[in-house]
Structures are given as C-alpha cells and as structure tokens.
Design a protein around this nucleic acid. Structure first.
Length: 547
RNA sequence: GGCCUUGUGGUCAAGCGGUUAAGACGGAGCCCUCUCAAGGCUCAAUCCCGGGUUCGAUUCCCGGCAGGGUCACCA
C-alpha cells in the first residue's frame, strides 16, 4: 500500500506545513521548573457550571501559585454545541468569581503566541498530523456508516463482547487499496481512525497527580481521530493542543479517566511527551438514598446563575470550593482570617480522591462569615448590586437611599463594627431582612403571646414614657418600669427565683414592643431600631400595634 | 455486563502500623442576654464487611459488599 499517495488522496490540502515545523513555531515555554501551565478548555455552550468553576479554580491556583500560566482554549470541534457570545460569557462568569486568564481566546495578552485558541481555527495543524499518521501507516480511512456501526455494537452486546471498533471488528482496517479508492471515487464519506497497536491484555501503571497510582488497560480501539467533516475529535485535538500549547498539567473531571489510554496512545504515536494529568472527582449531591453527580438538567444549584440570583457573595463560593479542593484551606483560613485567600498554598496533590457531596449548609456559613467581614459601604455595594439586577421595584427604591441603608447596616447588623452580627447569608435574604425599616414593606403579623389587655397596657405605657432622645440604658429602664403594672417581673433574677409569681418578665415586655415595631418577635437591638426609625414612625407603629 | 475508581461521625475531612481517631458545617445543651444573630463552653455521633500479614491494623494484602465513572463521527 502506498501510504504517501493515500495520505495525499485523503488529506488533499495543498497548504499544510510539515508537522515538524510546529515544534519550531510553538517552542517550549520559558518557565521556572515548577511553574505549571494549565488551561480551561470548555466547549462553547457558554454554560459554565459549578463543576467548571471548581475545576477552573484548581487550574488557576495550580498555575498562579507556581508562577505559571493559566489559559483559555475553546473546544469548538462540535458544531452543534456552539452558542453565540459563549466565550465572553465564560470569561465574565469566571471573572465574577475572581478568576482571570493570562492567555487565550478573547484574552488580550502579549502571551498569546500559542494560539489560535479556537480549535476550529487550528484545523490545518491537526490535518498536518493526521496526514503524517496516514503516511506512516498509523491511521486509515473508515467508510462504515452509522447503521453498520450500530449493527456491530448490537452484535457485540448480544454476544457479551466488548463493544467498539477494534481487532476483527475493525473492518476498514484491512481494506485493499482498490476498495479504498473505489469508495473514494464513489464519494462515500469517511473518517480517519487510529490504527491502534495496543492490547487489552496489557496494563499500564500510570501516575495521576490526584489519584496517585492508577492502572489502566491499554487502548485497542481504532478511535476516530478525524471526523467526516474534516475536524478532529476531542481526543486528537487534546493531544495536539496540549502538546503545542505546552500545557504541563491537565486537570479535568474523572469522567476522562476512562479515555486516558486513548490519549496516551495518541501521544505516543505522535511522538509527544504526555503532560501530567490530574483527574478530579465530581461534585455530588444526595438524591434520595444515594449520591450522584450533580446534573445540569436536574440540579439548579449546579448553575452559577443560581448563586448570583440567590445573592451568594462570590468570594464565599470560591472559598467554599477551596475547602473542597484542599481541605486544609479551612484551617488555614481560621488561622489567617484577614489574609488574602490567594496566599494559601494550594497543591493539586492534596485534593481528595473521592467525590464530595455539595453542602449548602456549609456554603451558607462561609457566605455569612465573608459578608460579616465587609464594611457597611462594601456591604451596601454588594446588596445594591444584587438589587439592581434581581430586586423588586420596592427594593430598588429603598436602595436609592444609600445613606439610610448604610446606617441600618452599621447600627443594626453591626456591619463594619466590632460587634459583628452574622445575619446576612445571601443578598436576597439580607435585603428581605431589612424590609421592616421601610413602611411599604413593613408587614406585621402581630402574633402576640399575650392578651389584648396586657398588650395594650404595655404599648400605652411605653408610648407615654417614650422619649426618642433616650440612650440604651434609659430606654431599657423604661421597659422594665412597665413590668409591674401587668404583673410581670422587671428583673430577670427576680423572675427566675419564682416564675410562678409572675405572668412574664422584661423580655416578654420587650417582645410585645418588638412585635409592634418590627412585626417580628426577634430582631437586633430594639432601642437602636427605634432610633433609626425616628420618633414619628416609632410612635405610629406602637399605636398601630394595639389590639 | 466489561473496564477503571472510591469507601473515617449526617456532611466536608485530617490521619500513612501503636493516637483519648484532629478540625469545620450541621444537631443537642449551657453561659451571656430585652429577643434573635454573634461569641464562649460542653455533649452526642465515624474507621463498610470478612479473611489474612503482623506482637499490634482505620492504616498493608486478598475477597466480598456498596457507591461513582465510562463504554459516540459529544466534549
């Protein structure tokens, strides 16, 4: 068989460079020995989910803690997956969570010498290598139709054989020269397959950066490397691109582990040294009794938009993910509460081998802790950002008065102060939390635990004594003074020593006032709340609270 | 089903042959306190099972069992 002639017939492109040329065009990067070159390589659907962010974080940290490079490559070999504006959307989504690329598609950078970063634009490179493989007799055309392939698979399944295109099932592998040219002349569509030399009898010991020693079975499948549209498959593009973009560490989901043998063989046949691989376990969730991988279709919490809409603090999502990535991150954070999270020493090797269940409780805790560290103005900015995008018209109106909101945050939530409350987990809930500071969203339910007489007596008594100038202690002494008239204890100690003698105590008096003023039995410091509301509104609410 | 992979409290997990088996979230309780939140303190709760190897296994080996992944001209 004249493979040179065959290659020219199959890949007739007249403008291909000799493959060796690419070694010169894309030379080894100049980098420190330990510096890692990593990449995020999404398909251009534009849908970036939590799993992508998790993985991107591992990539970004691996590169940037070692002084390396993190770049963006777009795997657009499947036309069907393309969505307009997707690349910008990927970059924007990651930027929202503080992740920036050094190089790559749509990234303005002097480093962009390893591009193009869209696989479709790299067709010539792939085709040059496919052509060389055909010349070397390591790849061949396959004219099998989808129907034929399906029939073979069914036969294999029925006979309990391994499915796929290999060994005796690789029909087109042994096509004669005349058969090939006849098919070509007939205009039959074809793909190019790798002529695998592997055997499933052979095991390969492989070192994964996360999983450690892994044994995989050698590939014996004649996988498709060039699709009938002349575009390579993922497997082939990965080998070529990660080699010529000089990637040192490929971090990807563990669903790729099973195709590792293919990638290893491809590197070998192309004469490339494979990069280091790190296969991450996927994020799981509970589904009834069992765990399962988070799914795009079923789980809204996989979508990054979910966190934006709910108003999670982006840094909190990142920090939570960091704790899943390197579990000692949490301990480090506790010891260094004010340190920039980026100064933590992330290492890919510390990643867990098993898949973590995504824990919203934990995320909520991280989020409220992060938000509590904000200054009142920063907190306002954050909440306002959410309100602008997702808030109701009322929220927007409230937030137009920045000074009032900041005052509320400072005094009530203790934001930015020494006594930090941790009331706000998410912007959505934080915004709702201050609804009672505005008359149009103040919707009291008046669920008093005492009867009309007591409630009215307390309220009237306080109205008579109320002075907006009172400081905290005077205010409280007035609350205490209300107790005896309704048969309540004004001192807690008094009450505790003989609860049966009283109808209630000071805290119950305060509760009645609190329900009238805030509409809720629980709230931050009531005296401060009344001061913020002002005399007029406070009095109006006290009066309206009467039964 | 074949192949690969994982298995420490409810969850995330430290642990690398000898430990009272860390820590965090969540839960329970106490303290503080005008309630709530926060904070402080305390408690409950874990090595999947069975065989080996060993003076000694959560740690090493084998076998089960259970979970996960994958078997495309998708990535």
């Amino acid at each position: 068989m004249d493979t040179i002639k065959l290659a020219a017939a199959l890949i007739p492109d007249g403008d291909l460079l000799p493959p060796e040329e690419y070694e010169r065009i894309y030379p080894e990067r100049e980098r420190a020995p330990k510096a890692e070159v990593t990449r995020l390589a999404p398909s251009p659907t534009g849908f970036i989910h939590l799993g992508n962010l998790y993985s991107a974080l591992a990539d970004e940290r691996s590169a940037h803690t070692t002084g390396g490079v993190f770049y963006l490559r777009i795997e657009d070999t499947d036309e069907k997956r393309k969505v307009d504006g997707a690349v910008e959307s990927v970059i924007r989504s990651l930027k929202y969570f503080g992740i920036d690329f050094d190089e790559g598609a749509e990234i303005a950078s002097p480093l962009n010498v390893y591009g193009p970063y869209y696989q479709r634009q790299r067709a010539k490179i792939y085709r040059a290598f496919v052509k060389r493989l055909i010349e070397q007799g390591r790849a061949y055309p396959c004219f099998c139709t989808e129907e034929q392939l399906n029939a073979v698979r069914e036969e294999q399944t029925a006979g309990k054989k391994t499915t796929g295109y290999y060994g005796a099932y690789a029909k087109c592998r042994n096509l004669s020269e005349t058969e090939i040219y006849d098919n070509l002349k007939a205009g039959k569509p074809y793909v190019i397959r790798l002529k695998s030399e592997g055997s499933i009898e052979n095991k390969i010991a492989f070192r994964d950066a996360i999983k450690g020693e892994v044994t995989v079975t050698e590939n014996d499948q004649d996988v498709v490397i060039l699709k009938s549209d002349g575009i390579p498959t993922y497997h082939f593009a990965h080998a070529v691109d990660d080699h010529f973009m000089r990637t040192t560490l490929v971090i990807r989901g563990e669903e790729w582990l099973s195709s590792l043998p293919v990638h290893l063989e491809l590197h070998k046949v192309l004469g490339f040294k494979p990069p280091r691989y790190a296969h991450t376990s996927s994020l799981m969730k509970m589904d009834g009794e069992t765990k399962r991988k988070l799914s795009k279709r079923k789980d809204p919490e996989l979508s990054l938009d979910y966190y934006r809409k709910a108003g999670y603090f982006p840094l909190a999502v990142v920090k939570y993910l960091m704790t899943l990535l390197n579990s000692d991150f949490e301990e480090w954070s506790l010891k260094n509460p004010d340190a920039d999270w980026r100064s933590f020493k992330f290492r890919i090797e510390k990643m867990s081998r098993s898949g973590a269940l995504f824990d919203l409780d934990k995320l909520n805790d991280v989020s409220k802790t992060e938000i509590s560290k904000l200054s009142a103005r920063e907190c306002y900015e954050f909440l306002n950002g959410w309100v602008t995008e997702f808030g109701t018209p009322q929220d927007k109106a409230h937030f137009s008065d920045a000074e009032y909101i900041i005052k509320v945050l400072e005094l009530i939530m203790g934001v930015g102060g020494k006594k930090r409350r941790k009331d706000i987990e998410r912007a959505e809930q934080g915004v709702a939390l201050i609804d009672y500071f505005f008359d149009d969203t103040f919707r009291p339910e008046y669920n008093y635990r005492y009867g009309k007489e007591i409630v009215n007596a307390v309220l009237d008594g306080f109205i008579a004594a109320y002075d907006p100038e009172d400081d905290n202690s005077v205010w409280f002494s007035k609350v205490k003074a209300l107790a005896p008239a309704v048969g309540f204890a004004s001192e807690m100690s008094e009450y505790k020593s003989a609860p049966e003698k009283f109808g209630g105590n000071v805290s119950d008096i305060a509760e009645i006032l609190r329900i009238a003023v805030t509409g809720m039995p629980n709230s931050p410091d009531l005296c401060t709340i009344m001061r913020i509301l002002g005399e007029e509104r406070s009095l109006a609410r006290l009066k309206a609270g009467k039964r």
